[in-house]
C-alpha cells in the first residue's frame, strides 16, 4: 500500500510535465500526421488525398534534393565539429591549465551562446563580396578565390554548413571537455611510464573514455543538421536556385507561404522518420558499446 501511495505521488509530480508534453508535442504530432493526408490550405475546406502528399515528397526533385542537402549538412554540423573538438580536447589535456587554455575554451564556446539567427547574420556579412572572408583572401594574394560565397551555386551549401560547424563546435567541445575531466589522470601517467606517445594516449585512453560523450554530441548535432532551419532561412533562404534548400525551410514555405499544409505536414513526417532512422542506430550502437 505504501508503494501505491508513492507511485501516486510520483505520478502527481510528473503530471504537469506529462500534460505539457501531451498537449504541445504528442497532440500536434497526431495532428501533423492527420493533416498530411489532406489537401488543405490551413483555413478552408480540406480534401482527403490519402498518401498522395507522401508520393509528392518522395518524387518532387526539389523536395528530394532538400533532404539530400540536410544529409550533407551532417558533415558540417557533426563530423567536423566533433573532430575539431576531439583534437582540441586532446591537445589541451596535455597542456597545463592556464591563461591560454581558458582563453581557448572561451573562444571555442563563444559561438554557442550566440542565437543562431545572429550567427547567420554575422556570417552573411562576412561571406559577402566585400566581407571579411574575401578581404582576408585578397590580402594574402588569393583574390582569384574571392567570391560572393552564399550567392555562388558551387559554394553556398558548404558556406552555410560551415556556419553550422562554427556554432556546434562550442557545444561539442564543452561536452567532450567535461568527459575528459572525468578520466583518471593515473591512466595517462601509467601510459606515459609505458612509453606511450600522444597519439597512442589519444587512441587508447581518451577516445574510448569519451565514447558516450561523442555519442551524445553526434546525436544532438545530427538532429540539428537534419532539422536545420534558422541558419539557412536567414543566410540564403534556400538559394541560390535551390542549392541550399533544406526540409526545415521548405516546411515553413509550404505551410505558410504557399498554403499547402497537407504537403508541408507530409514533409515534416518524412523528416521525423529520417531523423529517427539516422539517430536511432547511433543510440543503439552507443548503448551496446557501453561497458
Amino acid at each position: 500500500m505504501r508503494d501505491t501511495g508513492r507511485d501516486r505521488a510520483g505520478l502527481l509530480w510528473v503530471l504537469p510535465a506529462l500534460g505539457f508534453y501531451a498537449c504541445f508535442v504528442l497532440y500536434p504530432l497526431t495532428q501533423t500526421a492527420r493533416y498530411s493526408l489532406y489537401d488543405w490550405n490551413g483555413i478552408g475546406e480540406a480534401t482527403w488525398v490519402g498518401l498522395r502528399n507522401y508520393l509528392t515528397v518522395l518524387t518532387d526533385p526539389t523536395l528530394r534534393d532538400s533532404v539530400v542537402h540536410a544529409l550533407v549538412l551532417i558533415l558540417f554540423f557533426t563530423v567536423i565539429p566533433v573532430s575539431i573538438s576531439l583534437l582540441a580536447v586532446a591537445t589541451m589535456g596535455r597542456l597545463r591549465t592556464g591563461a591560454f587554455v581558458s582563453a581557448a575554451r572561451t573562444v571555442l564556446f563563444l559561438p554557442q551562446i550566440i542565437p543562431l539567427v545572429g550567427a547567420a547574420i554575422i556570417w552573411t556579412w562576412m561571406y559577402s563580396d566585400q566581407g571579411a572572408v574575401n578581404q582576408v583572401l585578397r590580402a594574402v594574394g588569393l583574390s582569384a578565390l574571392a567570391r560572393p560565397w552564399l550567392a555562388d551555386f558551387g559554394t553556398a551549401l558548404a558556406a552555410v554548413g560551415l556556419i553550422g560547424s562554427w556554432v556546434s563546435t562550442g557545444f561539442c567541445f564543452v561536452l567532450l571537455m567535461v568527459g575528459a575531466g572525468k578520466i583518471d589522470p593515473a591512466l595517462y601517467e601509467a601510459a606515459r611510464l609505458d612509453g606511450a606517445n600522444a597519439a597512442q594516449e589519444f587512441r587508447h585512453i581518451t577516445l574510448p573514455a569519451l565514447r558516450n560523450e561523442i555519442g551524445v554530441a553526434a546525436t544532438i548535432t545530427t538532429i540539428a543538421a537534419l532539422s536545420s532551419f534558422d541558419i539557412v532561412y536567414v543566410s540564403t533562404g534556400g538559394g541560390p536556385g535551390f542549392s541550399t534548400m533544406v526540409p526545415g525551410v521548405q516546411i515553413i514555405r509550404l505551410a505558410f507561404t504557399t498554403g499547402e499544409v497537407g504537403l508541408s505536414s507530409a514533409l515534416a513526417i518524412v523528416l521525423l522518420a529520417l531523423v529517427l532512422a539516422v539517430v536511432l542506430p547511433m543510440q543503439v550502437s552507443n548503448r551496446k558499446a557501453r561497458p
Binding site: 498537449c23 500526421a33 492527420r34 493533416y35 489532406y38
Partner: peptide
C-alpha cells in the same frame, strides 16, 4: 488524450 482527440477530430480539418 491526444490519440482520442485526434480520433474524434478525424474528419477533414478546416471549414
Amino acid at each position: 488524450l491526444p490519440a482520442a482527440s485526434a480520433l474524434s477530430a478525424c474528419g477533414a480539418p478546416g471549414s
